[in-house]
Design a protein around this nucleic acid. Structure first.
Length: 600
RNA sequence: GCCGACGUAGCUCAACGGUAGAGCAACCGCCUUGUAAGCGGUAGGUUAUGGGUUCGAUUCCCAUCGUCGGCUCCA
């Protein structure tokens, strides 16, 4: 969000400006379709702007934007006052006769049950109108005093998209017009620049340019193919997490790709996620599924490994398993939303008393790993069960799990915000949401407490009291999935990865053909020292070779001509453009290894 | 899955009812090079796929597939 003050966004001037801009836009659009042909729904401010939902006689196109914006500027320049008026439900219904969505909202308000999003409210709210010029909207406010307070040079209509009425896919789909609005033209410029910058960093574009991964219609949607460069990055990323987990006392297991459907019926996943699983493979009346999650497999493995004593706990099972999820085609996006994903998933089997210590350990591990990837700005969402929906009905276990998570968060001094209804069906979760260099948020890590599945799957351990107890399982992921995390990394670093992660760490650039042999010898030496290097022996001139290494964002360029070959040196250029001159090969190796160790 | 836009050479894009064109990349040759593009040549497309309209379709229409922007969903 663009506001610098500590004041909540909802109370800021910008919020009012955007909310008011939404009303002005709604007026302009309704005027485009006279005689009440335009049905208006809702139009709130959002991060960076606002939207308004309409049902219209025809589809709007971006060509309509100019006329709408033009009319909006007129309304702004006429400086109409926003007038609030508290009314009775009766009056409200009279005003919005012929506006079915507004009538539905009024009825909701009248019943005192729900707000404009259909969320329950505690007390019956007052019903109010805001009117400016000829346009009246059912609205709680607040607004700016008059339309003139919207800067006519600082707003822009952005896009049109379909959106379901009240966000429910069973409801009719409306046309949503998105706009952005700011206090000054400079702020608008800056915002549009940030969008451009985000576009330049788009991992789908960079992934192709850097030759990391591809999608193919022949293989299928959401099923990425990784090139040698892409694969080495995956490998480095997974190795790093694996090594860190081992250091933290985790063990790794392997549970394959196919599982009998029956197991997911027992765990509860089948009823909750059947439409997100690939169709079953049938063999002799037994159905198998491509594994969409690891937990039931890990729990089954725990069970098969014999009777467990409390002395063995906690047991921490990690696995880099490729899972297959039947995401709807419209939901697929580059590497961030795929149908084949490799999770760095762990399940920790522990006693209730150990939850806090295990949570702390997982949090430490997550902090270390995210730090290595230059993520140090993150927040935590505590996702709790809602009143209705998929959540397993066992209030006692839920409150124990929630209490355990809260106390673990508090003990670790972690600030968090609570999100009702966002939990997994089997338990609450703490999600770690990191901010990248453009200030965008990504949900990466997660820690979840599960009191439900272990019991359903019949897990147990023998306690000090020689009685059988059900262990608690903590589900935990650090980077989430390798694919998605790689996509986030590409955008975070704009493709200029830290040396330790760069698929090619150095390109060797012989100036003339006679230097190629020397370059190859140096390359061998560097490879022997664990560095990933390439020799550019193409016909290009040095400038061309530098250019192509630059566009590939290779951290080091090692130029070598007669002088260097003679002295056993390399001329080091960094991708920043800095020319560090000739240094010995040993000095370069030392420098590279230092950079790798430092994570830079 | 839903709404909308889009789909032309490996990539970025042009043409547009009259059997497709550029730059980069690729390949071949010349140059032998000092910190972001040396020069020349060659090759490359059933214009996503399948139907339809038309004397004629890459262009217009329909369907399918895919991509993009949203919605919904996210163990």
């Amino acid at each position: 969000m663009g506001n610098k003050s500590s004041q909540p966004y909802e109370q800021s001037d910008l919020y009012k400006v955007r909310h008011s801009a939404a009303h002005v836009m709604a007026q302009a659009v309704t005027e485009l379709f006279p005689d009440g042909a335009a049905k208006i729904a809702i139009g709130p401010p959002i991060e960076d702007g606002f939207y308004y939902d309409f049902e219209l006689p025809r589809q709007l196109t971006p060509e309509d934007f100019e006329a709408i914006e033009q009319r909006m500027r007129e309304i702004i320049n006429e400086d109409h006052q926003f007038n609030k008026q508290v009314v009775s439900a009766q009056e409200a219904k009279a005003e919005f006769k012929g506006q079915p969505y507004k009538l539905e909202l009024v009825e909701g308000l009248e019943a005192g049950a729900v707000d404009e999003n259909g969320e329950p409210l505690d007390e019956a709210p007052e019903i109010s109108f805001y009117t400016h010029d000829s346009f009246t909207d059912l609205c709680r406010g607040p607004h700016v005093a008059s339309t003139g307070q919207i800067n006519p040079d600082a707003f822009k209509l952005m896009s049109i998209a379909g959106a379901y009425w009240r966000g429910d896919e069973n409801n009719p789909q409306l046309q949503r017009v998105y706009g952005t609005a700011w206090e000054s033209a400079e702020q608008l410029e800056d915002y549009l620049w940030r969008l451009e910058e985000a576009k330049k960093r788009d991992h789908r574009k960079l992934g192709k340019e850097l030759g990391l991964f591809y999608f193919s219609d022949d293989v299928g949607p959401g099923l990425p193919l990784f090139t040698p460069k892409g694969e080495i990055m995956r490998h480095i990323m997974e190795d790093y997490v694996r090594e860190t987990q081992t250091r933290y006392g985790y063990q790794h297991v392997w549970t394959g790709h196919l599982v009998k459907e029956q197991l997911y019926a027992k765990s509860g996943h089948l009823e909750n996620y059947i439409e997100s699983m690939f169709p079953a493979l049938e063999d002799d009346n037994v159905n198998y599924r491509l594994k969409p999650m690891n937990c039931p497999s890990h729990m089954t493995l725990y069970k098969e490994m014999g009777k467990h004593s409390y002395r063995e706990l906690p047991m921490r099972f990690g696995e880099f398993a490729t899972l297959y999820r039947y995401e709807k085609t419209g939901e697929l996006t580059g590497l961030t939303r795929v149908r084949a994903l490799t999770q760095d998933d762990c399940h920790i089997f522990c006693t209730p008393d150990q939850i806090e210590q295990e949570f702390t350990l997982a949090l430490q591990l997550i902090r270390e790993v995210l730090g290595r990837y230059h993520f140090d700005d993150y927040r935590v969402d505590l996702s709790l069960r809602g009143d209705e929906g998929k959540f397993v009905d066992d209030p006692e276990k839920w409150s124990r799990a929630e209490a355990a998570l809260r106390s673990a968060l508090d003990k670790n001094g972690v600030e968090y915000q609570e999100a009702y209804g966002e939990a997994a069906f089997y338990g609450p979760k703490a999600d770690i949401i990191a901010r990248d260099v453009l200030g965008r948020e990504w949900q990466l890590s997660t820690i979840q407490v599960d009191f439900i599945q272990p019991e359903r799957l019949g897990l147990s351990y023998v306690g000090e009291d020689n009685q059988e107890h059900t262990p608690v399982v903590i589900h935990r992921a650090v980077t989430g999935s390798t694919e998605r995390f790689m996509g986030v990394m590409i955008e975070h670093f704009a493709g200029a990865f830290p040396v330790w992660l760069a698929p090619v760490q150095a390109v060797l650039i012989p100036i003339a053909d006679r230097h190629v042999e020397y370059a190859q010898n140096v390359a061998t030496l560097l490879k022997d020292n664990g560095l990933r290097v390439e020799v550019d022996d193409s016909n290009d001139r040095m400038g061309g070779k530098i250019r192509s290494a630059q566009t590939q964002k290779v951290p080091y360029m090692l130029v070598m001509g007669d002088k260097e070959a003679e002295a056993g040196q390399v001329a080091l250029r960094l991708r920043s453009g800095e020319d560090l001159g000739a240094i010995s090969v040993d000095d370069f190796i030392r420098r590279a290894q230092d950079d790798i160790a430092a994570g830079s």
